[in-house]
């Protein structure tokens, strides 16, 4: 506890030093201040954007798309991953398709999505959905395949139907690995929402950053990046809070080495 508090304090000091160095580099014109404005100016711009509500509006548009794509992926892939984990035949049937499609870098579907959905929200939601698929699907499948046979036998001997066994035994037993997939996908979501908004959009934080750069409002561009970093941090913390409450048994189990 003291160790972690201390290291957090140290981390904060490092952050402050980086910001101070930034300020210095810009003020002494080691880097062109037009492209690399001083930190104080970026922060001023950041706070004025926060207080005007502009940043919040942009983030909300981005989050709406992100949430739609992410949740859609979870809704499709957790059930599908469970089915693939339980039935080897389904896994075998889909294996080749998955192994072919999975190595595609997600941004490559942007042009395809544009053909089908134009530049609207549908395109972005689809791109996020596609890139979130794999971690959730593969982790869920793996988690289910790794469940000990004895546990499945236990569900069966207590007379559970397949459906109830999935809800009461398989899902909780695989939940740590499902959560891992959800966490990886959360990071990917943030990347893809920005990319898709930079390709074509009239709002959202990705659009805002690119637009500020085009109009040479460089301090605003950096302020947008800062808010994106804060958003990512916040989302990750929220996710950890959620998974720590939900999976407290699993953390305890790992610590006990059993």
């Amino acid at each position: 506890m003291t160790w972690s508090r201390e290291s957090k304090l140290n981390g904060f000091l490092v952050l402050l030093s980086v910001m101070a160095a930034w300020e210095l580099v810009s003020r002494t014109e080691m880097l062109n201040p037009l492209f690399f404005p001083p930190m104080s100016k970026i922060l001023r711009s950041f706070f004025s954007l926060v207080f005007s509500g502009e940043i919040l509006a942009q983030i909300l548009s981005s989050m709406r798309r992100a949430a739609a794509g992410y949740l859609l992926a979870a809704l499709v892939c957790i059930p599908l991953g469970i089915i693939m984990g339980l039935f080897n035949s389904v896994y075998r049937a889909l294996e080749v398709v998955i192994e072919t499609a999975r190595p595609l870098p997600p941004p490559v579907v942007v042009p395809v999505a544009m053909l089908f959905f134009g530049l609207g929200d549908g395109m972005k939601v689809f791109v996020i959905f596609f890139s979130c698929l794999w971690p959730i699907l593969l982790n869920t499948m793996d988690g289910v395949r790794n469940i000990d046979r004895v546990l499945i036998h236990t569900a069966r001997t207590f007379g559970l139907s397949q459906g109830r066994a999935i809800l009461k035994v398989i899902l909780p037993a695989a939940s740590p690995q499902i959560m891992t997939g959800l966490r990886i996908s959360l990071a990917i979501t943030l990347i893809l929402v920005v990319i898709s908004e930079m390709v074509g959009s009239s709002d959202g934080i990705g659009y805002f950053i690119l637009d500020s750069q085009r109009r040479l409002k460089v301090d605003q561009m950096y302020a947008g990046m800062l808010s994106l970093a804060l958003l990512g941090y916040l989302l990750n913390q929220l996710f950890l809070l959620f998974s720590n409450t939900f999976l407290s048994w699993h953390r305890g189990m790992l610590r006990s080495d059993k």
Binding site: V150, T157, P172, A173, W249
Partner: peptide
């Protein structure tokens, strides 16, 4: 109405 208590009790309990 028939239940088996498994020899591998540790794998049979619900860790959650």
């Amino acid at each position: 109405n028939l239940v088996l208590v498994f020899q591998e009790y540790n794998k049979s309990l619900f860790a959650w």
